[in-house]
Amino acid sequence: MSTTIPAAPPQKVAEAGKTTRFRLTDRARKERNLGWMLAGPAFFVMVAVTGYPILNALWLSMFDYRLTDPAGRDFIGLGNYLTILTDGLFWRQFGVTSLITVVTVSVELVLGFGLAMVMHRALYLRTALRTAILVPYGIITVVSAYAWAYAFSNTYGFVNGIFGLGEFDWFGGTWSALAAVCVAEIWKTTPFMSLLLLAGLAQIPDDYLEAAKVDGATAWQRVKRVILPNMKAAIMVALLFRTLDAFRVFDTVFIMTAGSQNTETLSFLAYRQTISRVMVGLGSAVSVILAILVVLIAVMFVKVFKTDLSQQRGDRK
């Protein structure tokens, strides 16, 4: 909160003599004040509701503090971070989280691109298509997780029946359980990805494609040479948003496997330390590490892949 509404009066006094410039400056000043009056409340609320928890998490992460043992609260500096970063479990869950992220986001990219193409091209069923696609987007993640957990269940589900898998226990092994989790995640979030891609697709001028067609390019060549290069910005933004989201996956795993069979993710690790074990310090440290990782991913996208976020803003210059 270092930025507050800048004080205007000194300027006003200095420029009081010059009538024409005063009017302009006065207008600018009014605009500036109005700007902060309008944006201030939102800014203040955003900073207040997250600023405190973030700082508090940083502070708590330096304590050995168990909620049920308040007397045993000790300052241990970076001790919790050391514990976490030297623990195999953290790295395994980092691996699981990364795996889920990479698998779901890449499948979603391909699937989402297909969906976007169909949505862009189909002349019939347009409304039905867009309405249907929004259902997974809008549905509660927990509901989607239950639906898929029951679908894959060997007691209730239809999946085994359809694929003739008999009594196969999807949640009995790491790989099959992760597969089930990924399916649920992909189903729920591909529509979001596809809509962001659709935005990019819609920006490609039709004459580019026509020109390519006239040149005798095949459908695949048109996709590769015209569509994809022109959609690069949209693709990067979609990838960034989904990667950040996927890396924080929690609800789906919580409902579908409760973390068993080594399917725990980093958000789950934070949840377990904080909520189940009430090791508030350790849990806060996990949260901080998770936050740092998420920020790193964002920075990587922006710096390394040159993802232009303003593109997302509709600032097409």
Partner: peptide, 17 residues
Amino acid sequence: AITVFPVIAIATPLFNL
């Protein structure tokens, strides 16, 4: 910046507060 911060990280300090 706020949208990238994990919710789970905000939940604990808020519980305490």
